[in-house]
């Protein structure tokens, strides 16, 4: 489903990803953990083509993401992305936030897009907020709005970049619950996260990133209970 081989990413002289090899299967939930600056966000940006890559390849369902002929706008419809900052569009209502892209990118009619958008909003528990503007929503609600916005494109894969780390503690739960629900429904997910509980309970595998290298990857029990790498152990002892 996703196949990353020998991925290298540089920002000028800064070598941020140093040869990543990673495969994510359909229906799998992968959590990515690691300290700040280790390149986790950059990995996600590379996967959906928001950042260029310098070497290696990323294939999504046999489409080469960074091939010059690839239609990125088309590819991105398959890849839903949720950011740390929820990035709701402030000038649109919740319903319009969700319905906009299906309408203008997928060409759905206005009524069809609205109908599906309200389904998605119901799905994430915002059925009573259809006509609210983002500034009237809490952080947790805005983040669920962002999830609904991504889901409305009917992606086959969801990328979460620290979806909860800008939230007040009491709002983290509702967003994690929504992500759990998606995982149960069989969505393929890559979740960059600082929530070790979530990584342990929900994911099929956990990957630990350290300074641009994927130090270790494995089932949560293995990675959390018997980490192989020195760096992983040091990191885990700090976050626990």
């Amino acid at each position: 489903m996703i196949d990353i081989t020998n991925l290298h990413k540089r920002f000028g002289p800064l070598h941020v990803l140093k040869g990543i090899n990673l495969t994510v299967d359909k229906g799998e939930v992968l959590s990515v953990i690691g300290s700040s600056g280790s390149g986790k966000s950059t990995l996600l940006y590379c996967i959906n083509g928001l950042e260029s890559i310098q070497d290696g390849s990323i294939r999504v369902d046999d489409t080469e993401v960074h091939h010059p002929k690839t239609d990125l706008n088309r590819l991105r419809q398959k890849l839903g992305m949720v950011f740390q900052q929820w990035n709701s569009f402030p000038h649109l209502t919740a319903l319009e936030n969700v319905a906009l892209a299906p309408r203008i990118v997928k060409g759905q009619s206005k009524s069809e897009a609205s109908e599906r958008a309200s389904e998605q909003l119901n799905h994430v528990g915002l059925g009573d907020k259809l006509d609210s503007y983002p500034h009237a929503l809490s952080g947790g609600q805005q983040q669920r709005l962002a999830i609904a916005r991504a889901l409305a494109m009917e992606p086959s894969l969801m990328l979460f970049d620290e979806a909860t780390s800008a939230l007040d503690p009491e709002l983290v739960g509702e967003v994690l619950d929504t992500m759990r629900m998606l995982a149960r429904e069989g969505m393929t997910m890559i979740c960059v996260t600082h929530e070790m509980g979530f990584a342990r309970d929900v994911s099929d595998r956990v990957a630990y990133f350290h300074q641009g290298i994927m130090e270790e990857i494995g089932p949560p029990e293995q990675l959390f209970n018997t980490p192989q790498s020195e760096h992983t152990r040091a990191f885990l002892s700090k976050v626990r």
Binding site: N73, R76, F83, Q85, F89, K106, A150
Partner: peptide, 25 residues
């Protein structure tokens, strides 16, 4: 910048992003 990224991540083209997201703001 993140507004631009968010719009691109749902598959909007650069033109659509400007017209629907950036210019109104």
């Amino acid at each position: 910048d993140t507004q631009y990224r968010a719009a691109r991540s749902v598959g909007m083209s650069a033109g659509q992003t400007y017209y629907h997201i950036i210019i109104p703001q």
